[in-house]
């Protein structure tokens, strides 16, 4: 059988990706996680002296703490299998990537294991976050300098 023929056969038999279902599940689970985050935001504004501007940090930290518990008890993995991007895109998913790698590589020691692998999955997010922020700011500075835009 030729490669082309085989590819056709394989494609016929392999179940198609349920785009619609995946997207809807991601929407609902992602939405719920953000809603929980929103509730935490209110909690910090009402019960502590945080403002709308400063409440981001404690909210994110709390979400990642919750992510640690769910990751450690193996529940975030199950959520991820169900929700896909719905649980990967919120900051809890970033936490899960970092925390699961740290747990996984504990056996190789604190320095080489945890230290060397903690950003195995999340490293690319940090790289692209920092690098794109740098270039965006640079471009903006150039545009302001030559007078195309205002700050």
């Amino acid at each position: 059988m030729e490669q082309e023929q085989y590819k056709n056969l394989e494609q016929q038999i392999t179940p198609p990706t349920p785009y619609m279902k995946n997207a809807l599940i991601a929407f609902f689970v992602g939405g719920i996680i953000c809603t929980i985050g929103h509730a935490i935001t209110y909690f910090y504004i009402i019960f502590f002296d945080f403002t709308e501007k400063t409440v981001g940090n404690p909210t994110v930290s709390t979400m990642i703490f919750l992510s640690m518990l769910l990751t450690g008890f193996g529940l975030y993995k199950k959520l991820g299998q169900f929700a896909g991007a719905g649980s990967a895109v919120p900051v809890t998913g970033f936490g899960n990537a970092v925390i699961s790698a740290a747990i996984e590589h504990r056996t190789e020691g604190v320095v080489l294991g945890i230290g060397g692998n903690i950003f195995k999955l999340a490293g690319s997010v940090i790289l692209f976050g920092v690098a794109s922020a740098f270039f965006v700011a640079l471009i903006k500075l150039i545009l302001v300098t030559i007078g195309v835009v205002q700050w």
């Binding site: 997207a23 991601a26 953000c34 929103h38 991007a85 990967a88 990537a97 997010v125």
Partner: peptide, 28 residues
């Protein structure tokens, strides 16, 4: 918060599925 947050995740899922990308690629 629900709708906007959910919508961003939905876009992420579409990028992942249609682009056949790993979560790492999608998040980047």
């Amino acid at each position: 918060a629900f709708v906007i947050g959910g919508f961003i995740c939905l876009i992420g899922q579409l990028i992942m599925d249609f682009g056949k990308l790993t979560p790492g690629h999608t998040l980047s």
